[in-house]
């Protein structure tokens, strides 16, 4: 049955399908999007040029987001959260959204843990960064990739 359906696809039908996808993509991409370079520039500004080390900070997002408008996100940093040694902040940076900076959480030893959850917007499939600053001034980075499904039956 399905074999037969595939047999009868003609060129015109494929063009209809392609047209629809192109229209959807055009509608979604008619705005200037940030590039990984802009994200890197934002990062450099944030850290004052310091190169963050990999590790200590974790970014948890779904591998595939059903809808880019609401993507559950969790950030955390490995820190004892004492007066002498704590995580001061974690920023979430997008490499493909219209703006690289999504949000920054600020913590204190009173926080007990450097962990926060939020829901964010992802314009398209992309790499996302979490950048943490510790009380000793050192910077750390964690990365993840989120696939955003576009063009199904949004309605």
């Amino acid at each position: 049955m399905s074999m037969m359906k595939i047999e009868v696809i003609d060129r015109r039908t494929f063009l209809i399908g392609a047209g629809a996808s192109a229209a959807t993509l055009a509608a979604l991409s008619n705005l200037a999007h940030a590039t990984p370079d802009q994200a890197a520039a934002f990062l450099a500004k944030l850290t004052g040029g310091a190169q963050p080390a990999e590790g200590k900070v974790k970014l948890v997002m779904p591998e595939i987001a059903e809808n880019g408008a609401t993507v559950p996100t969790e950030v955390s940093a490995d820190s004892p959260m004492t007066e002498k040694d704590y995580c001061k902040s974690i920023s979430i940076i997008s490499t493909k959204n219209p703006k690289p900076h999504i949000c920054t959480f600020h913590f204190t030893p009173r926080s007990g843990k450097a962990v926060a959850k939020i829901r964010v917007r992802m314009a398209e499939t992309q790499e996302v960064w979490a950048v943490a600053q510790m009380s000793d001034g050192k910077w750390y980075i964690g990365k993840t990739t989120v696939k955003v499904t576009i063009g199904g039956c949004g309605g």
């Binding site: 037969m4 595939i6 009868v8 696809i9 039908t13 399908g17 591998e63 595939i64 499904t149 199904g152």
Partner: peptide, 23 residues
């Protein structure tokens, strides 16, 4: 009829590829 069937088929074909791996 051909067009109908083909539309459904092409949607589903594209679907199979794009949706692969969704949780």
């Amino acid at each position: 009829g051909r067009k109908r069937a083909a539309v459904v088929a092409s949607l589903l074909l594209a679907a199979g590829l794009a949706g692969y791996g969704a949780s």
